[in-house]
Amino acid sequence: MRGDEKVIVNGKNMEFDGDISVKDLLSHMNVDEDVVVVEVDFEILPKDSYETHILDESSRVEIVAFVGGG
């Protein structure tokens, strides 16, 4: 991404300065990457690519958290 770009995360626009990786996004949102699954453009990303997968203004991100209960 260049300048102020918007990424759609869970259906909401989020704006960032410059490039942001999935790992950076999760950190920015205070989300523990060990308890979520991240889907970018309808594909589930392997956790080992969170640091290297760079998002752009066309990225559509869904973050799904695991919830325990019973």
Rank of each mutant, 00 (worst) to 15 (best):
G18L: 03
K6D: 01
I44V: 10
P46C: 02
D34Q: 13
E62V: 08
I20G: 04
N10K: 09
D32G: 02
G18T: 12
P46K: 10
E57S: 15
V67A: 12
V9E: 03
T52E: 14
V35Q: 09
G18C: 06
I8N: 09
S21H: 04
M1E: 13
D24N: 15
L45F: 03
V22N: 01
F42Y: 13
M1G: 14
I63R: 00
T52Q: 08
I44D: 08
M29K: 10
G70S: 08
K47V: 10
D24G: 09
I44E: 12
D32Y: 06
V22P: 00
L25V: 12
D41E: 08
V61R: 01
F66A: 11
D24I: 03
V36H: 05
V7C: 02
E15V: 15
D34E: 13
V36C: 09
V31I: 14
Y50H: 05
K47Q: 11
M1D: 12
D32L: 05
S27N: 11
F42V: 09
E15S: 14
S59E: 14
V22C: 02
V22L: 03
E62I: 11
M29I: 12
G18H: 07
F16H: 08
M1Y: 11
K47N: 07
F16C: 11
V22M: 07
S49R: 13
M29G: 01
K23W: 02
G70A: 07
N30I: 02
G3C: 01
V38Y: 02
K47G: 00
L26I: 00
E62W: 03
R60K: 15
R2L: 13
E43S: 14
M14D: 10
I63A: 04
L45T: 05
D17R: 15
S49W: 08
V7Q: 00
I8R: 14
G3L: 13
I20Q: 06
E33M: 11
E43A: 09
D34M: 09
V31S: 06
G69I: 04
V64S: 10
L55C: 04
E33G: 09
E51W: 02
D17S: 15
I20H: 07
I44L: 12
M1S: 13
V67G: 03
K6N: 11
E15R: 15
S27M: 04
R60H: 14
T52D: 11
D48S: 11
V36A: 06
K12G: 00
E39T: 05
D4K: 14
I63Y: 01
E15D: 10
V67D: 08
P46W: 00
R60Q: 15
V37T: 04
E5F: 09
D56K: 14
M29C: 07
E39H: 02
E57N: 15
H53T: 12
S58T: 14
F66C: 09
D19W: 05
V38Q: 01
K12S: 08
E57L: 00
M1F: 11
I54L: 13
T52Y: 03
V9F: 06
D56A: 05
D4L: 06
I54Q: 08
S27T: 14
D34T: 10
L55I: 03
F42N: 14
V37I: 12
H28Q: 09
V67I: 12
G70K: 09
V7A: 01
N30K: 06
V61S: 02
N10A: 07
N10M: 02
D32E: 10
L45W: 09
D17Q: 15
A65G: 08
E51K: 12
E39K: 04
V36L: 05
I63T: 01
V31C: 00
A65S: 15
G68M: 11
V9D: 01
